[in-house]
Amino acid sequence: MESQLRRYTPFRGPFDPCPPVPFKTYVVPPNQFITFQPPDLPQFSLQEALKYGTLWPALFSPYESKCKGGGK
């Protein structure tokens, strides 16, 4: 699966006060698919680990912010 982002369309009622939102997104991080972390996973370098927020690339979840660019 390419990215951890998934999409759904919120319910649209006949009396909605605002225009309908096309879709909303949510993130499903990799740790949802790894029940028990296997040993000896490849690791980031220490500097990268600090930047990415995890020591193992397999568990990294970008979780980009919605405000710059994203959103729609």
Binding site: Q37, L46, Q47, A49, L50, T54, L55
Partner: peptide
Amino acid sequence: TLDFALVELNLY
């Protein structure tokens, strides 16, 4: 940087 890696390893 070292402290972060140590926290990760400790939890692991």
